[in-house]
Simulated assay, not measured.
Amino acid sequence: MATDTQNPVPTAGTSVPGDLGRNLGMALRGYQGRFEAAVDGMPAGIRGYQVLSTVVHRDPANQQALGAHLAIDRTVLTYLLDTLVDAGVVQRIPDPADRRARKIIATESGVKTLAAFEERVAAAEADLLSGFSAIEAQTLGSLISQLAASVHQAQPGTNPCDAMDNVP
């Protein structure tokens, strides 16, 4: 590691143990502020966006699978879904495979709402990554996705919202 003997700060491009955590935290903080602004006005905010996005793009089998995918406690999910149902963006229907369970589906209004907020979120993400070329941004996204999948596989119950809520 190259350092100046008068100023023991690592030079650009070098890192020391612990820098990864600091850098991830700084990136997450930058993302969180932009994401919160982008979903301002979304029923139930960030979590409402995540639920609606998961319902539309992942089509979880039922309410329990939705909660497991997002690592949201079932009691919290119930209140969250109540808010989204009251806003008219999702509805609960009997699960065709198990009539005792409920499947969550997006309403037509919910699909339109999500599309509008996805544009805002995409713009916020583009702003965060504006210092990267398109290839660098795509590579970063791919690498972070791989890292997230690895962490999720090792710790399947980990709640990503806890990380965002506790960024120093």
Rank of each mutant, 00 (worst) to 15 (best):
V51M: 14
R22K: 13
G33Y: 14
E118M: 02
L129C: 06
G131Q: 05
E136Q: 12
R22V: 08
M26I: 07
R47I: 03
T107S: 09
A37I: 04
L128E: 02
E108W: 10
L52M: 04
H69A: 06
S109P: 04
G30Q: 09
Y31E: 08
V111M: 11
M42H: 04
M42E: 07
R22T: 13
L24A: 11
F132Y: 14
T113I: 07
Q50T: 01
T14C: 11
V55W: 01
Y79T: 05
Y31G: 07
V76W: 06
E118H: 08
A87F: 11
A65K: 05
D19T: 09
L24W: 13
G13T: 09
A38Q: 01
A27M: 13
I135A: 12
Q91H: 07
T83F: 05
T83D: 13
T139G: 05
A101W: 01
G13N: 15
V39S: 00
T5Y: 11
D40P: 12
L52S: 03
E119C: 09
G88I: 01
T78L: 08
I72W: 04
H57S: 12
I104E: 00
T113Q: 15
L80R: 02
G48K: 00
P60V: 10
D95C: 02
A68V: 13
L114N: 00
P10N: 15
H57L: 03
T75N: 11
V76M: 05
A37S: 00
G141P: 00
Q6I: 15
V55G: 04
D19K: 09
S15L: 09
A12H: 12
V16I: 13
I72P: 01
L70W: 12
L128P: 01
